[in-house]
């Protein structure tokens, strides 16, 4: 892949008090690719993405977005540059309407006419949101809320989308829909996507490249088609030859 790098993470470490949640994490994301970070619960995946998006301060290391150093910048400044973060557990503004949720994504560009065109475009992609346009975000189902937060992120016109556990708490059918959507966003919009997943089976179907994170460290990195399933599962669980139903699922 000779595409230029959109994101470079170099030696990123994050401390929670005295606990090191991410240790010396380094990886890069090529423009137009889908990159997956997989790993068990508590591996430091969310911490890594949140630090990249500016939500928590890194204790060491640097993050470059489009070649520009964004380490330590506030989240709103990073968002304006075209990096959109969709945190875990959806974070819909529950008391605000679907319309207002979507509008929030457009305000930072300050172009009212284009915001209306963008909303029309987004509603075409997410017809279910159209029928609930004037309802409060909190009234939507889990799947609809996941669609709404992705749609809202698209309203910021990002070049890089950071998705934290997009399948968490969703029915399998909805998870399929979400991944289908993410795949089509890459093909049709040329969007670069970095996805955190515990549910590695799903994400490995769409990812070009993957990193296995455990205990705050990257255990394994490589292109999806060059890694053996047994190698991935060993990195994921940390025990050689450890095979169970989960591990098979993780690598299928």
């Amino acid at each position: 892949m000779l595409q230029p790098l959109i994101l470079e993470v170099n030696g990123l470490s994050v401390m929670y008090g005295r606990l090191k949640a991410a240790r010396d994490v380094s990886f890069a994301v090529a423009r137009g690719s889908i990159v997956a970070i997989i790993g068990p619960n508590g591996a430091g995946k969310s911490t890594t993405l949140t630090a990249i998006a500016g939500g928590i301060k890194a204790s060491a290391g640097a993050v470059k977005f489009n070649g520009e150093n964004i380490t330590g910048a506030p989240p709103e400044a990073i968002a304006v540059k075209g990096l959109s973060f969709v945190p875990e557990a959806r974070h819909v503004f529950a008391s605000m309407t679907v319309e207002e949720n979507l509008l929030l994504g457009s305000f930072m560009r300050g172009d009212k006419a284009r915001a209306e065109a963008d909303i029309a475009q987004v509603l075409q992609r997410f017809p279910r949101l159209k029928s609930r346009f004037h309802e409060a975000g909190g009234k939507l189902s889990g799947g609809e809320q996941q669609m709404l937060v992705i749609a809202r992120a698209l309203m910021t016109r990002p070049t890089l989308l950071l998705m934290d556990e997009p399948s968490l708490g969703l029915a399998p059918k909805v998870v399929d829909e979400v991944y289908e959507l993410l795949g089509s966003l890459r093909t049709s919009e040329g969007l670069t996507i970095l996805i955190n997943e515990q549910n590695s089976r799903r994400v490995l179907k769409v990812a070009d490249e993957l990193h296995v994170l455990r205990e705050g460290r990257i255990q394994l990195s490589g292109m999806r088609n060059q890694l053996h399933e047994a190698t991935i599962s060993q990195a994921y669980f940390g025990i050689a030859g450890f095979v169970n139903a989960e591990a098979e699922q993780a690598t299928r």
């Binding site: 500016g54 939500g55 506030p74 989240p75 709103e76 973060f85 503004f93 994504g105 910021t156």
Partner: peptide, 10 residues
Amino acid sequence: AMARYLGVKA
């Protein structure tokens, strides 16, 4: 926090 990820200036 979510508002800031959407570019709302804190």
